[in-house]
Amino acid sequence: MLQKLYDWVDERVDITPLWRDIADHEVPEHVNPAHHFSAFVYCFGGLTFFVTVIQILSGMFLTMYYVPDIENAWRSVYYLQTEVAHGQIVRGMHHWGASVVIVMLFLHTLRVFFQGAYKKPRELNWMVGVLLFFIMLGLGLTGYLLPWDNKAYFATQVTLEIAEKVPFIGEATKTLMAGDPNIVGAQTLTRFFAIHVFFLPAALFALMAVHFILIRKQGISGPL
């Protein structure tokens, strides 16, 4: 029955190459922790992806309550944290996930680096990876402001001051991010919100797609 369904779709859209890349490939022995325990280092990329999925899902649920304006942002987070059933868990997952994903990314980068897996022909994928790392840091930076508590407010003020001091482009960058050359306020919060939930995730998805397509095309690097 399933096979028939598959064949029906396959005849019309030729999904076999796609299915092969997603699921029907082989896992060589040197990356399989069932054979060599030390191969667990190959899990860090997958765990990064797993935590990223957690971030996306918990973030989607957070936006069901979060209100990105300075009157209500803190109140909505407080309400979610204290009144909504399981709200504390949802916010906790997004909060701790943001830290765990950085740790996993760091470990993944170290695995790729110390194995020299960025060498020819994988240079491009390494650079895509570094860009992914920057995007994640950007998500952390913009997300930090959103609860609109004192730590968010004052840390963002410092960040914007640093941006402002950059020669030539500093002031324009600050105004672009904060919405005003001097005030950290209503505009800043809505801009950081837009960057955090639309701009950076869009870039993240695009780069992750390139990352995974390249891995499938090139295959995992061989044993050392």
């Binding site: 300075i70 803190w74 109140r75 987070v77 407080y78 944290q81 504390q88 916010r91 906790g92 997004h94 909060h95 701790w96 943001a98 830290s99 952390g140 930076l141 930090y144 609860p147 609109w148 508590d149 004192n150 730590k151 968010a152 407010y153 004052f154 840390a155 003020q157 410092v158 960040t159 950290v184």
Partner: peptide, 21 residues
């Protein structure tokens, strides 16, 4: 460990030492 939340942002808070993540 519930995610921490501080008091609502108040630009007039004196002597707050900012810290990033």
């Amino acid at each position: 460990h519930p995610a921490p939340l501080e008091g609502i942002a108040d630009p007039t808070t004196a002597g707050y030492i900012p810290l990033p993540d």
